[in-house]
Design a protein around this nucleic acid. Structure first.
Length: 544
RNA sequence: CGCGGGGUAGAGCAGCGGUAGCUUGUCGGGCUCAUAACCCGGAGGUCGUGUGGUUCAAAUCCCACCCCCGCAACCA
């Protein structure tokens, strides 16, 4: 019975992978890269497995920080957002991200969909009105957010922003400040009544508790802990409108001068972008997103994004449709450190994706970014170590294994490969590697999976050394044939196993071996004549 | 008592109740098919501190203390 079952064509699984939306007010750095790359690996893995995948993301283009930057640079917020959106598209392409859809929150499609969703929630009574006093600047003619207010810090007496004092580092509420002024024009502020729409997040306490309970095994530990913290404090209702002039208009007459809060609309971008793809296929998003065991939903981001993905996003999805599928796998990574410190713009140690791609191959970057990924705790990222990893594992390990075999065959036999049998033990190890590594990737642990697959390189080189084909060739032609076949078999499987991680190089290897498209399953290679054999990776000489 | 992560060979890390392990570096050997590549072995640690607690047994659990880092500020 069991045998029969495996013979039946496997049913396609449906997988939606949402990668966090980088915020368009600065260049993308290796922190983003490490947070997002696992999503790409997972997507590529499922595609190789024959499953139906949607990898979606985009640029987060609205919000206060962008308007602040625009004001400083005396350009429009849109110019800022467009500039950085373009750099993101470029950077992501340069490291071979395989997005099915990468948009931006200022796309007309996204904006229209968000307004529809917003209205639907409004009509369904998910929001309520709230009025309270807020700081208003008359000359700017707008309400100010905490970070736009200046005033005297109640703790140290210096001039502070409304959210936290730069001098004594105390965080606060703007209401604690004395003698408040507008951070934009410097004028006095006044208190005025302001109304906003609030989302009844508190009503979803039970649902989120259930969600966490159901999926805690597929969520990273940091996501489980962080979510638990929010739940134990009790979920609070959140404002969904903001007083800004840059963003998506609130589609409700009474609030039409306000914008939708960025986190609400940006996080729903996963939904709008996958709807975009489904539209093309003539599938209704409501049908596709119906809760179902065969629909997996991964979300990849950094740890500071956790509550937005594990609490707010699921609650919004439920508000859209009570029967909606919710995130099943949370892939939330820790931080990249530079030396002992965190990487940040203000410390001036930002390592941008742009400068990396200027100097290095995408595969070199991807390989190292995954191998040193802050999967379970903070980890470091240095170009020196990246070069070291490249030379050691890609050049000396994988590349060398391919080259020592193929170049020998080319030199001694003009590239002719005779028949032979593949080693039984190697076959078994190969099969079990597909299985175990696949399971680890499905669990979202791409670093652990790659570490596992890297061991296959050592297995291969050791096999070669132990069997000494350069000696056997003179003594036992049949044995030499077997060894050669086994090595080529291992190369062929490397070109599959490593494909999600370093796709460009593995496609080059496939071309050399005249293999078809990558698949996540054991493959043999019956090549008889080698042609166009090239070195797979070039050694990087350390220079600065 | 704000919350969280961490302190293990020169460096970077794994182990998280049972003879201290991996990678890199270093030293030596092997091989000569290979891009100073590959394979094997040696040296190197009283596992932050405590003549602390639990245990037959502690890097591993508990307690106290010290130190680093992150979050609560734009930022994954």
């Amino acid at each position: 019975m069991k045998q029969e079952k495996t013979d039946v064509k496997k049913q396609k699984r449906r997988v939606i992978i949402g990668n966090a939306w980088p915020y368009a007010n600065n260049l993308m750095h290796v922190g983003h890269l490490c947070a997002l790359l696992p999503g790409d690996i997972i997507a590529r893995y499922y595609r190789l497995s024959g499953d139906e995948v949607m990898l979606v993301s985009g640029s987060d283009c609205h919000g206060t920080p962008i308007t602040e930057r625009a004001r400083k640079e005396k350009v429009s917020p849109r110019e800022i957002a467009e500039t950085y959106h373009k750099t993101f598209v470029r950077d992501l392409g340069a490291v071979n991200f395989s997005y099915d859809k990468y948009g931006a929150t200022f796309d007309d499609y996204h904006k229209a969909e968000i307004q529809k969703i917003f209205l639907k929630m409004y009509d369904a009574g998910e929001f309520f009105k709230k009025t309270d006093t807020q700081d208003f600047c008359e000359s700017c003619n707008m309400f100010l957010s905490d970070r736009e207010i200046r005033g005297t810090c109640p703790h140290c007496g210096s001039i502070s922003k409304g959210d936290q004092c730069d001098n004594c580092l105390t965080s606060m509420d703007a209401s604690q400040l004395k003698e408040k002024t507008c951070g934009i024009c410097g004028g006095k502020t006044q208190q005025r009544q302001n109304k906003s729409l609030m989302f009844k997040l508190s009503g979803y306490q039970k649902d989120i508790e259930c969600l966490l309970d159901k999926n805690r095994d597929h969520w990273r530990v940091n996501a489980v802990n962080e979510t638990q913290k929010y739940l134990s404090q009790g979920l609070l209702d959140r404002a969904v409108t903001r007083d800004l002039n840059w963003g998506i208009d609130v589609p409700v007459e009474e609030f039409k001068d306000k914008k939708i809060y960025v986190w609400i609309e940006a996080v729903l971008g996963y939904y709008t972008m996958s709807k975009f793809l489904l539209d093309q296929r003539g599938i209704k998003v409501e049908d596709y997103y119906k809760a179902s065991d065969d629909l997996r939903m991964y979300l990849a981001h950094g740890k500071d994004n956790i509550p937005f993905h594990t609490v707010i996003y699921p609650a919004l999805l439920l508000a859209v449709d009570k029967n909606c599928q919710l995130p099943t796998h949370i892939v939330s990574c820790e931080y990249i450190k530079v030396g002992a410190e965190k990487m940040s713009k203000s410390l001036g140690n930002l390592l941008t994706v742009y400068e990396l791609t200027e100097k290095f191959d995408p595969d070199t970057i991807r390989f190292y970014a995954i191998l040193s990924n802050p999967e379970k705790k903070d980890s470091g990222f240095t170009t020196t170590e990246m070069i070291n990893t490249h030379n050691k594992l890609l050049v000396g390990g994988l590349g060398n294994f391919v080259n020592r075999n193929l170049s020998y065959l080319v030199k001694k036999f003009e590239g002719k490969v005779s028949g032979g049998a593949v080693d039984k033990d190697i076959i078994e190890k190969t099969r079990s590697l597909y299985k175990s590594a696949g399971e680890i990737i499905e669990a979202g642990n791409t670093r652990e999976a790659l570490e596992h697959i890297v061991e296959y390189i050592q297995l291969a080189n050791k096999y070669y050394d132990d069997n000494k084909p350069w000696v056997k060739v003179h003594e036992d032609a049949a044995a030499f044939g077997d060894i050669t076949r086994t090595c080529i078999y291992m190369m062929a499987n490397m070109s599959n196993l490593f494909h999600p991680f370093i796709p460009a190089a593995m496609d080059r290897l496939k071309a050399m071996l005249k293999l078809g498209a990558a698949k996540w399953e054991e493959v043999d290679c019956d090549i008889t004549q080698l042609e166009n054999i090239n070195i797979l990776f070039n050694r990087i000489e350390e220079e600065k």
